[in-house]
Design a binder for these strands. Structure first.
Lengths: 152, 152
DNA sequence: CTAATTAAGGATATATTTGTCCTTAATTAT
DNA sequence: ATAATTAAGGACAAATATATCCTTAATTAG
């Protein structure tokens, strides 16, 4: 449903909510291994969320890394999607019509309009922190098959 | 949500359900103009659905074109998605985990599993023909802003 | 202060998706 | 039969997404 970039971003943020804080930063190597994503590519994705809109914080240098503030941890995945400008995946027309609306609906509009709010609510009604805390149950995971390489 | 290719395919098939039959074929030019898609690219997409799995029929030559049989018109959009091998967009893990399941769920699994069947049902419980017939209401449309070029 | 560590950022590479153009083959109307 | 029409199909082009590598800048520990 989402692009790889978006998936990595969401997984990374949930992981950061679980493992990081202002005095417990997480390096890109650990993070990427944990969520099963390519390291440098993930770094770029995090940079976007660090630089402009400041959802993620980072510090360089020894014991540096990425972390989320308590405030950031209270945001929802939908908020992350909005920062990534990927809300359209949910809010857009399912047949890809630019002008699909209540006034000029596509043939699927009347059906999808009932599900759209459920999807948005799903992405909005829990905080990142709440999602992360569900991982106290060890069967709940956030990683793909673990990468064994130690490459950059 | 879906790729351009998939969107074009779904729109094309709904249009063909409305406008075509065994003795009323639709040419690629008319079709692509009607649904607002690039002509040659759309041709390729239709070829895939014509060649192997035979959802769409076609004939070359004068008065030729594409058409759907009555049988094909009774299929659902979900069936089209399965022919395109794009069901995973709905059925896959929302965070992109390959191994996400009831046994090893991602943090969103318990929420998304309630919505997934609604999405699948939305795509399955109407036939292509039923969707097409809704376009008797002239406000229901299947095209983007119309292309004015006459290019191939 | 120095060296080590870590993210930032630029450049580049690869893969995939999207789109175009041209030739060929099939079919039909005359 | 011939010419016109239309999809099929191959080759290529452009755009975008994904991924890697290297250098730089910032920070910190010692």
């Amino acid at each position: 449903m989402f692009s790889k970039s978006t998936e990595y971003a969401l997984r990374a943020i949930i992981y950061l909510a679980q493992k990081s804080s202002a005095n417990q930063k997480v390096g890109i190597a650990e993070l990427a291994d944990a969520i099963g994503s390519p390291r440098s590519f993930t770094a770029k994705i995090l940079q976007n969320l660090t630089r402009d809109n400041k959802l993620i914080n980072s510090v360089t240098g020894p014991n540096g890394g990425f972390y989320l503030t308590d405030k950031a941890k209270k945001k929802s995945l939908l908020h992350v999607l909005s920062l990534l400008e990927e809300e359209g995946i949910i809010t857009g027309c399912i047949l890809g019509l630019k002008e699909c609306s209540e006034v000029n609906p596509c043939p699927m509009h009347s059906q999808y309009k009932n599900i759209k709010p459920l999807l948005l609510d799903m992405l909005d009604h829990k905080t990142i922190n709440q999602l992360a805390s569900e991982m106290v149950d060890p069967k709940i995971v956030i990683h793909n098959i673990k990468r064994k390489t130690n490459k950059q």
